[in-house]
Computed example of a mutant assay.
Amino acid sequence: MQAEEILAGEERRARIVAGLGSRNIVLVGLMGAGKTSVGRRLALALGLSFVDADVEIEAAANQTIAEIFSAYGEEAFRAGERRVISRLLAEGPKVVATGGGAFMSEETRQRIRGNGISVWLKADVRVLLERVRRKSHRPLLQSDPEGTLRRLQNERGPTYATADLTVNSHEGPFHLTIAELLDRLETYLAQENKA
């Protein structure tokens, strides 16, 4: 499905982008939720730029995330992640895909609240597992991927639930998720205007 079909009209796109102002749409959720895939397509549909925070972190460090974890540990990675996301949020409006643990930082959540609209892409563990099985570069999934995803979902779910919007990341084509996201976003922005 083309971006134009998902968006269903230039007027809707203009309404949503105007409602965002300088704010970003920030996608949060577990690895495999589709943040990058949905984010790219959403940005295209809205005529915004897209950035993947993990790619930016790797570029800034000149290392892969796995190498950063291995050499410096998770805490050093998270500190770099906070700095990169802070920089990205200051450059809106755009669509930003964050790493799975980024939203766990109170500092990052506050920055997102000030410079964006957060969207939790929520997916069942079964869907997440199917998506991440194809990738072996995820440091947190080196042993027992299913158990790790279940644990992370239980630990992080309550924090993800504080996002401005929650959208189900379907196991089918991503355009279903994007259509739901656009509907929710449009409603959210309309309610803001009434307040």
Rank of each mutant, 00 (worst) to 15 (best):
S86H: 13
L30D: 06
E91N: 13
L48V: 01
G34C: 05
L30S: 09
A61C: 09
Y72V: 08
D52S: 08
E91D: 15
R87Q: 14
E74V: 10
N62M: 09
K35R: 10
R40C: 08
G29T: 02
R87P: 11
A61E: 14
A90P: 02
L30T: 04
S70E: 15
G19I: 05
R41L: 13
I25P: 00
R23P: 00
V17E: 13
V26R: 00
G32Y: 01
N24M: 01
G29A: 04
A79K: 14
A18V: 00
I6V: 15
E81I: 02
S37Q: 10
L44Q: 15
R40N: 07
R83I: 09
G19Q: 11
I25M: 05
F77K: 00
R87L: 11
S86Q: 13
V28P: 00
A60P: 03
V26W: 02
I16L: 11
G39Y: 03
E58W: 03
M31P: 00
A14E: 15
A79Q: 14
V28M: 01
S70I: 01
L42I: 07
A79F: 06
E81Y: 06
N24T: 07
N62H: 14
A45L: 05
R12K: 13
A53M: 03
R12H: 10
F69E: 11
A66T: 12
G29D: 04
T64Q: 08
G73D: 10
A60Y: 03
D52Q: 07
R13A: 12
I57D: 09
E4V: 10
E67Y: 07
A90R: 12
F50H: 10
L7V: 12
G19A: 07
T64P: 13
T36R: 05
E58K: 05
I16W: 10
R87V: 10
L44R: 15
I57Y: 06
E81H: 05
A43K: 01
E75I: 14
V17N: 13
F50K: 03
I16M: 06
E56I: 02
V55Y: 12
G47P: 01
V28L: 02
L42A: 09
L89M: 04
R40T: 14
S70C: 07
D52W: 01
N62P: 06
L42Q: 09
I68P: 09
L44F: 03
S86T: 14
G73L: 07
S70K: 14
R78V: 04
R15D: 12
R12D: 10
F50G: 06
E91A: 15
R82V: 13
V26L: 00
L89W: 06
E10K: 11
V55E: 14
G39K: 02
L42N: 04
R13E: 08
A90Y: 01
V26A: 05
A45Q: 09
A71D: 13
M31T: 13
I65N: 08
E75C: 06
L27N: 00
V17R: 15
T36E: 06
I16Q: 11
R15Y: 11
G32E: 04
E5P: 07
G9N: 12
G80Y: 02
